[in-house]
């Protein structure tokens, strides 16, 4: 149990997937402009990531490995993720039309979110049990949510500041992310 909790904390803070492993940067930069959008993006990613990681791990462990089909893993994983993203698109449109509109293009683009695919690939290589895979996925999702919500809060404050003209737009967002990454490096001592 202690191992699993360590895995969870490690994935959230020490090896934060976004800020130390460069995964999921596309939605992080794209949807992290407003706090409300960031919340919904975090919720959506958590749902898709956990569900797809569980399904992908079962497929990898009990179908691809025994039949020696590991070379197909990329295609199978992408297929599962795209299906779950389409499903959550329909679900969100039905139960919460406003957030669905707010997320816009980022919802279908979740299918190509490197975090979701990256966690599926990492689980296949490293996780030694189903429970460990689930814990790592939840930790990665929580790490992503933490990073994107903090980032969106910072960027909402930035709107009110006078940023030098060449830095306006993408550059100042990258500087913000860089400083956040610097802060997260401090957690490395915990590991």
């Amino acid at each position: 149990m202690a191992d699993l909790l360590l895995l969870l904390c490690g994935a959230i803070l020490v090896n934060n997937v976004v800020l130390t492993q460069y995964l999921g940067l596309c939605p992080f930069m794209g949807a992290g402009g407003r706090l409300e959008t960031a919340f919904w993006m975090a919720a959506l990613t958590t749902f898709v990531l956990t569900l797809s990681a569980a399904i992908n791990y079962v497929i990898y462990r009990y179908l691809l490995l025994p039949f020696d089909l590991v070379f197909l893993r990329l295609i199978v994983f992408i297929f599962v993720i795209a299906t779950i993203v389409s499903f959550s698109d329909l679900l969100l449109r039905k139960i919460a039309p406003l957030p669905h509109k707010m997320l816009g293009i980022f919802l279908p683009l979740s299918a190509s979110n490197s975090l979701i695919l990256g966690v599926a690939l990492l689980n296949g290589e490293q996780a030694n049990s189903f429970i460990a895979a689930i814990f790592y996925s939840v930790g990665a999702a929580a790490g992503f949510s933490l990073a994107i919500v903090l980032f969106a809060a910072l960027r909402e404050r930035l709107v009110m500041n006078a940023v030098p003209v060449p830095f306006q737009g993408a550059a100042i967002s990258l500087v913000t992310a860089g400083l956040m990454a610097l802060a997260f490096m401090g957690f490395a001592g915990l590991g």
């Binding site: 460069y22 830095f167 967002s173 990258l174 500087v175 860089g178 990454a181 610097l182």
Partner: peptide, 10 residues
């Protein structure tokens, strides 16, 4: 480090 990557690209 990741931090340097963000800053240099910025």
């Amino acid at each position: 480090t990741p931090s340097g990557a963000f800053l240099l690209l910025a």
